[in-house]
């Protein structure tokens, strides 16, 4: 239902009613921000990339086709924005102290909370160490609520290839996580 609404809104934007983009922004800002956050591990960079995506949507609004689906189209733009960002900053190590903080869980006690925070921090670190292409397909499939057909459209490949890549990515991520957990324990 929301996909159809998004499509109609984007068609209005394409037709010149650019004010409708505000509704699309309100709906997609948060998932898009978290997509970039899991790819870059940096809040400021993710904020900039979200802004970049909506700037591009405005700029290329006339290229939105009648047969498009808004979410995969937006993620294709997001992916290109991220690739360009990575090219520009390939040699730069992003170390944003703001993202190093550990989330606070409200229910468990202090010990459980510390253990939970460590586990999440370790997962984040392992995710950041995963090669970019694998991190991208894993984030799209595990966190963005996208179907494999949509991911295939975003990555411009076969659905079967997406499934194999997701499996490879999670397997490698688990390996990295175990290595980090081992280092931490020793």
């Amino acid at each position: 239902m929301q996909a159809q609404e998004d499509h109609l809104l984007m068609r209005s934007v394409r037709g010149g009613d650019v004010g409708k983009l505000a509704t699309l922004y309100a709906r997609h800002q948060r998932p898009l921000f978290n997509f970039f956050l899991r790819l870059t591990s940096s809040r400021p960079v993710s904020e900039d990339l979200v802004h970049d995506v909506f700037t591009r949507i405005l700029k290329y609004r006339t290229s939105y086709g009648d047969q498009e689906h808004f979410t995969p189209w937006m993620y294709r733009i997001a992916r290109n924005a991220h690739i360009e960002h990575t090219r520009r900053r390939r040699l730069e190590v992003v170390a944003d102290p703001e993202t190093q903080r550990e989330p606070v869980s409200q229910e468990p006690g202090p010990e459980q909370r510390a253990e939970f925070g460590q586990s999440v921090a370790l997962l984040r670190r392992a995710l950041a160490m995963l090669p970019e292409d694998k991190r991208e397909v894993l984030v799209l499939s595990r966190f963005q609520n996208l179907r494999y057909e949509e991911i295939a459209r975003i990555l411009e490949c076969e659905v079967g290839a997406v499934k194999v890549r997701v499996y490879r990515a999670v397997r490698q991520l688990e390996q990295i996580y175990n290595e980090l957990a081992g280092e931490k324990a020793s």
């Binding site: 800002q29 948060r30 809040r43 904020e47 999440v120 984040r124 966190f143 999670v170």
Partner: peptide, 14 residues
């Protein structure tokens, strides 16, 4: 491990 990945929480943008 796949389920454990769900523990990474969403964050609110600025």
């Amino acid at each position: 491990f796949w389920m454990r990945l769900g523990a990474i929480p969403d964050e609110a943008p600025n």
